[in-house]
Design a protein around this nucleic acid. Structure first.
Length: 407
DNA sequence: AACACGGGGGC
DNA sequence: GCCCCAGTGTT
């Protein structure tokens, strides 16, 4: 794969499938210059953005860019401030307990990012004397830093002419050239087109400018074309079909999975379990539950019947981490209540419906792979959002530590 | 190349 | 409800 370090040579691998001819180097320079002029007037003030003319701290740039992966600016704001306050340097973050980092990340989603964040901080300290590499290749070798983030850090923190390609840039470029090839296959062509505009002068400001353009002007719906510095050259605006771009491959429907969650209380504490390091919600704490089973395929739903988990309750209850039946041999159970309604949550590729059983025990038995968490500090457990919903459903709202009280 | 992997906001 | 995402790692 060609490394975009200099303006694209004429011997490009394949011509982009755009209806219009791609921008010439001269046109590219004109576009970049006009966008930088626009940025000088309209740059947003963001917590991780340095004042004009000041080189930002690479640690701040890296932390913000990882948080911003698939996540909006408004959501990231509080998390960024909290992380910086708690771990002011990459060395401090590297020295932190991994579970503390995960708990601080709780609610942000894509928890592999938190695991990689910690691993990356340790790699920077161990292999790079606490300094981030200043090249795309060096950055991309670090955990959690892919094509986009490597280019973003190289450009923003080190002012290197790297071509960033995130969802914003994809949209802007796809509209500019009316690229009809669907994503994600069109990524390579879009990056080639984007590279023709990336300037050698002020590449860091340019990278932030084109993302600001996508975030505030060339928006997914109802783009503000009248405010766009690239309107004169925009093929989609000329054709009046901005909404068609970027073209995307069709998505698969999301199946439904169901399970029974066990809210188990004893002596003012609730039983929580640590999930395996890999996979969904990897390394996070959870409310124990039966296996999450796809509806229609499993015992949870009987063919031809309205789905009713109660019909399968005995089988599901058998999956509880403690024996819940009062009177069972050695069982500490005192009460068992099936709560009405279900907790609903949508993940990237499936919907989840959790019925909740509330168990009250008169003592705290030791349970493998589980721990008893005091209810009065549940907000500090770092529960992922779906598990906070379960806690709230069981009558114990657990506000995220990052949120202001009552928020 | 396809898939796994959260969550919040717009409409 | 369904749509959109400031992507990366694994297979």
């Amino acid at each position: 794969m060609p490394t975009p370090k200099s303006p694209p040579p004429s011997r490009s691998t394949s011509p982009p499938p755009a209806a219009d001819p791609p921008a010439s180097p001269r046109q590219g320079a004109a576009l970049a210059g006009r966008l930088l002029d626009w940025y000088d007037r309209h740059a947003r003030a963001l917590p991780w953005r340095a004042p004009p003319g000041v080189r930002p701290d690479p640690y701040h740039v890296w932390l913000s860019e990882v948080m911003l992966q698939q996540t909006t600016v408004a959501t990231v704001g509080r998390y960024f401030a909290r992380f910086l306050e708690r771990w002011p340097t990459v060395a401090a973050l590297a020295a932190a307990e991994r579970d503390a980092v995960l708990a601080e990340w709780a609610g942000l989603g894509y928890y592999a990012r938190a695991r990689n964040l910690h691993a990356c901080a340790q790699a920077v300290v161990r292999d790079h004397r606490g300094r981030f590499p200043d090249t795309e290749a060096g950055l991309k070798a670090l955990p959690g830093i892919g094509d986009y983030t490597a280019a973003a850090i190289a450009a923003i923190a080190f002012d290197r002419p790297a071509t960033i390609l995130d969802g914003n840039v994809e949209r802007v470029i796809a509209r500019l050239h009316r690229v009809d090839a669907p994503l994600p296959g069109a990524k390579r062509a879009l990056k080639e087109l984007a590279a023709r505009i990336t300037p050698q002068d002020r590449p860091g400001d340019y990278a932030q400018a084109i993302m600001d353009l996508g975030a505030t002007v060339c928006t997914p719906t109802r783009p503000q074309c009248l405010l766009c510095p690239w309107r004169p050259e925009c093929a989609a605006h000329a054709a009046g079909d901005m909404a068609r771009y970027p073209v995307k491959a069709p998505k698969r429907p999301k199946p439904v999975r169901r399970a029974l969650a066990f809210w188990i209380e004893a002596e003012g504490a609730v039983l929580l379990r640590r999930r395996p390091d890999r996979g969904l919600l990897g390394g996070m704490l959870e409310i124990p539950s039966s296996a999450w089973v796809e509806a229609g395929r499993a015992t949870l739903t009987k063919p031809g019947e309205d789905p009713d988990w109660r019909a399968d309750a005995p089988e599901l209850i058998a999956q509880a981490p403690v024996a819940p039946a009062p009177g069972a041999s050695g069982a500490p159970g005192v009460s068992f209540v099936l709560l009405p309604d279900r907790v609903r949550h949508t993940f990237t590729h499936f919907h989840l419906e959790l019925a909740v059983a509330r168990l009250a025990l008169d003592r705290r038995p030791a349970v493998d792979d589980a721990l008893w968490w005091p209810l009065d500090t549940l907000g500090q457990a770092g529960l992922p959002t779906v598990m906070r919903k379960v806690a709230a459903h069981a009558g114990h709202p657990a506000p995220a530590a990052q949120q202001s009280p009552g928020g």
